[in-house]
Design a protein around this nucleic acid. Sequence first.
DNA 1: TTCGTAATATATCGGAACGATATAGGAAAG
DNA 2: CTTTCCTATATCGTTCCGATATATTACGAA
Lengths: 179, 179
Amino acid sequence: MDIKTTCLAILSRADASGYEIKKAFEDGPFSHIQDAGFGSIYPALSRLRDDAHVTVTEMPQNGRPGKKVYSITPAGRMALIDALAQPSMPDRYRSDFLFRTLFANLLNPSDLETMIETRLAELREAVARMENCATCADLEPGEKFVSGMGLSVYRAMLDYIEEHKIELIGASLMAGAAQ
Amino acid sequence: MDIKTTCLAILSRADASGYEIKKAFEDGPFSHIQDAGFGSIYPALSRLRDDAHVTVTEMPQNGRPGKKVYSITPAGRMALIDALAQPSMPDRYRSDFLFRTLFANLLNPSDLETMIETRLAELREAVARMENCATCADLEPGEKFVSGMGLSVYRAMLDYIEEHKIELIGASLMAGAAQ
DNA sequence: TTCGTAATATATCGGAACGATATAGGAAAG
DNA sequence: CTTTCCTATATCGTTCCGATATATTACGAA
């Protein structure tokens, strides 16, 4: 899914500025499954404007740099529907954390343990945040599905690490003793 | 984790050609957590050679374009250990599939169902492949940990989609009827 | 009060990475 | 016998992303 389509999709829900699109990637239901920085969003919006898939309305905001609100056009909506109907790219997961665990023998055990505990804390926080989500009751079906999937996956990771971390640390201790 | 470090890590296990490094990303224990194409690997190897972190031995292979076997140097090993000790980047997950489900209302129900069944088939195949893994018994601890985590996560996804797909398709049918 | 920090807001640059593609011989399959 | 697949290296253009620059408001701390 390229960034142009992603921006179009967000704009199909509501008009937004580049900044608000960025926020949608950070906080909203997209946060766990897509990401984009300003360096991707602004060029994408420019190209979408060139293609007449969005229009821009500049709103002078008393002093502050004028807020540029982007709106999807009918042509943009058609392009979006077309792009969404195409076969989807396979999911991609990149994990520095897991890559490092593969080379746990090159890490000293205390660093490894710190790394694991940090990850556990992050996962616990993510799970807690998603469980106590105030707006979770009145989400629309698609958002509920994605959010539920996220929670389910985070729980699986959390449980797995808690159950098996001891094996990993044990192996690291033995590797250190062998040297 | 940049590609240079990733290549170094693979070379720390065994000498390899660029092609073999690519295969390690496709088949090996790395396949689910890191990826790189030739367009990333070859420039990375060139830069590693410039930094004296690897050496190259060209093996003329009776006619075929000479195989270039890369070996990690002591300096490379130190750079690797240094890089592995640094705090890890947060995991990143990108899913076209889940992004599309967020916009299920823009898809027609039969396309949506096809998409979901395709994903279920992929997940079932991945789980089956990991369960019947011939070499799983004699994996080293780090590889066992990562592989087990992968299996656990794939199962969680599979179960979740099977349990909740009906809600998603139902919502899509209603959206179609409303139009 | 003044200072610093965070939030709002847009935008660009350079480098890293990726997909597609070119090249080429050997092996296996049809 | 010919097409396709596997081994193997390499580059090119596009896309992407992190870092950075700029500017104003607001709020709390020193």
